[in-house]
């Protein structure tokens, strides 16, 4: 009987816990006023090379609604934080983004149920951003051994939208490598990677064993070239596609090959450039795939100064 009464008391206590927990959860939801005040405060303090982030990640659309005009595609679809020198976090529920630096923030302010935190990041070492400079490069498609230029085109209205459609074409501004095959173009896009994350990158879909190439002239090299690449989520998730190779050449000499196989996701390759012995050079990226169907290769790269360089 004693056990039964004990179980009964536990059952009677449960609604108390459940109602209390529910009330607390609802009460801790930040109000629109909290968000507005926090965003106004951040907006007043933002400067160049500031990165804005929300935690938990589900609140990212709210952050973008309030401060999206200060978040270019490159920030929303970044591969790393190297281009930024301060990190602002709009935090609720005590959450922090996974890439937050170790140590205490240099600034903390509370706005109701929200906190605004600011962290110092290392000085940016970025010398050259290949994505932001893509339209200054030269694109070509090789057919039967001969390279033909891919002209820069503008205009056209992308069709459709929705699941499984990937990047919508035609992209408004692009190097068009084959007008009959709308996926054979080079341009900056935002692509969904294998982790369903946005990647602001250069679309460079292979055509087959012969390359499609993008060449940049007179690129400052620094100490290393950091290359990230992957393909569109639905083209990779079944692990059924063939491999892709991207050859990175400096002054016409192949320096590294980025090999993608399905399941790799969006990952990086570091190419040391200090040993080349010259401060500037031409850099090209040539993409091939023996089975080019649904190989939506997309990459981003930067050259970076040595650590500690002014």
């Amino acid at each position: 009987m004693r056990y039964r009464l004990l179980i009964l008391l536990c059952l009677l206590a449960l609604p108390l816990w459940e109602l209390g927990a529910h009330a607390m959860i609802v009460a801790r939801v930040p109000s629109p006023e909290d968000y507005r005040a926090a965003a106004d405060f951040m907006r007043g303090q933002l400067r160049e090379r500031d990165l804005i982030s929300a935690a938990p990640s589900f609140s990212d659309p709210i952050l973008r609604q309030l401060l999206g005009d200060r978040m270019p595609l490159a920030m929303a679809g970044r591969s790393d934080d190297a281009a930024y020198e301060r990190l602002w976090v709009l935090s609720s529920r005590g959450a922090l983004p996974p890439d937050v630096p170790k140590g205490a923030p240099e600034l903390t302010r509370s706005f109701g149920e929200l906190r605004v935190l600011r962290y110092a990041l290392p000085p940016s070492r970025i010398l050259f951003d290949f994505v932001s400079a893509w339209s200054t490069a030269e694109a070509s498609i090789t057919r039967n051994g001969a390279a033909q230029p891919c002209p820069l085109r503008t205009g056209g209205v992308p069709r459709g939208g929705g699941l499984g459609r990937g990047v919508l074409t035609p992209v408004a501004r692009r190097f068009e490598c084959d007008a009959r095959l709308p996926w054979l173009f080079i341009a900056d896009v935002v692509l969904e990677d294998l982790d369903n994350r946005p990647r602001h990158c250069l679309w460079q879909h292979p055509q087959g064993s012969e390359p499609i190439t993008l060449t940049y002239r007179d690129v400052p090299l620094g100490a290393e070239l950091v290359f990230y690449a992957g393909i569109y989520y639905e083209h990779e998730r079944m692990r059924e596609g063939g491999p892709i190779d991207a050859v990175i050449s400096i002054d016409g000499q192949p320096r590294a090959t980025f090999h993608h196989k399905d399941g790799d996701g969006f990952r990086s390759l570091r190419v040391p450039t200090a040993s080349i012995g010259k401060p500037r050079a031409d850099v090209s990226v040539s993409v091939t795939a023996p089975q080019p169907r649904a190989r939506s290769f997309c990459w981003t790269a930067t050259t970076r100064a040595p650590a500690g360089a002014p």
Binding site: P72, L73, P158, G161, R165, L168, P198, Y233, E234
Partner: peptide
Amino acid sequence: EVDHQIWTTYGHV
């Protein structure tokens, strides 16, 4: 994915 399609098409996030 649809978010990203909109970002690319509209040019903002």
